[in-house]
Amino acid sequence: MAHTLLIKNMVCARCKSTILELLESIGLEIESIELGKVVVKQDIKDHYKTIKNGLKNLGFELIEDELVVLIENIKVLVIQCISENNVVDIFSKITKEIGKNDATISKIFSKSEGITLEKYIINLKIEKVKEYIQLNQLNFSEIAYNLNYNNSSHLAKQFKTVTGMSMSEYRKLQNWDRKELDRIV
């Protein structure tokens, strides 16, 4: 009997491999793994405490509350969209996947996280901008295009509002001030 584990703070491929390694070391067979979700082929009740503690020791958390599951699913969808440079219509993807309208999703997210979903998306996009700047592979116009900004000046203004410095000033820094994606909210 397959069992689905919903896991908080699982935001990248490295997270997936770390969790896969943990679960396999416990002796579990994995059917599928994606950001925020692992399907285990067998029943986990005998291993539940070990899984929960192992995840906690690695900085992850099993999600059991329905509201927390919803919020984590929203975060995972936003992170996936931004990571894949698929930011054209994040809200429609979220509403399609979650099955609730924009207003409901925004209200639930804001109430739970203390920040609007729009502001959360902006903060994640700014972290992606920081990554692009650090990699030094794209110019500011290309970065703006990849993240679906109308133009680079719109991105520049938003970057300065969020970080307090221009993108050029950030590029000159030696000590990159980047936040972990699972620590944005």
Rank of each mutant, 00 (worst) to 15 (best):
F159E: 05
I133E: 11
N139L: 12
E29V: 00
S25E: 04
S152N: 12
S92W: 09
S168E: 14
D46K: 00
D65Q: 08
G36N: 01
K45R: 15
L62G: 09
T18H: 08
M165D: 04
K172A: 05
I74G: 01
I7F: 03
D102L: 12
K8N: 04
H3G: 08
E34Y: 07
G164H: 12
V129N: 06
K130E: 02
E61L: 11
Q134Y: 09
E127M: 14
L28A: 00
E84A: 06
K8Q: 07
Q158V: 09
R178G: 13
A2I: 05
H3A: 10
K160E: 11
R14M: 13
G114R: 04
F109A: 14
C81W: 02
E84P: 11
H154P: 07
E64N: 08
L124A: 06
F109E: 08
T50R: 14
E61W: 09
V38F: 06
I7W: 07
S32H: 04
R178E: 08
N86A: 12
K179A: 10
V129Q: 07
G164D: 00
V38T: 01
E131T: 03
R178I: 05
G54E: 01
L147P: 07
N101H: 08
I74E: 00
S25T: 02
K179I: 11
N123Y: 14
S152W: 08
D182S: 10
V68Q: 15
D177A: 02
I122G: 08
R14P: 01
L117H: 04
D177T: 06
I51D: 00
E24C: 05
I63M: 08
V87N: 12
I105P: 09
F159A: 10
N150S: 13
G114P: 06
V162F: 01
L5M: 02
E61S: 15
L138Y: 11
T163P: 03
R171T: 15
N151P: 15
Q42K: 05
S83I: 00
I121C: 04
Y48V: 02
E113A: 09
C12I: 02
K52D: 14
I115C: 15
I63P: 04
V68Y: 13
Q174N: 12
V129P: 11
M165H: 09
V78R: 01
T50L: 04
Y132G: 14
G114N: 07
F109S: 11
I121A: 08
K93Q: 11
L135A: 15
K41N: 03
L35V: 03
K111L: 05
N148S: 07
V68D: 15
L22E: 00
V162C: 07
I108P: 11
E66I: 10
K179N: 14
I74D: 02
L70F: 12
H154M: 13
E169S: 01
I33M: 13
Y132R: 08
E21C: 01
L28T: 05
L22F: 03
R178D: 03
N146I: 05
N101C: 07
I143F: 13
I90Q: 03
D182F: 13
A156T: 08
N175Q: 06
F159V: 03
L35E: 02
V68M: 13
T116K: 14
G99D: 09
G54K: 03
L6C: 08
T18N: 06
G164V: 08
S152V: 01
Y132F: 15
N123L: 12
A156F: 02
N73L: 02
E118I: 00
N136Y: 12
N148I: 00
E34H: 10
Q80V: 01
K45H: 09
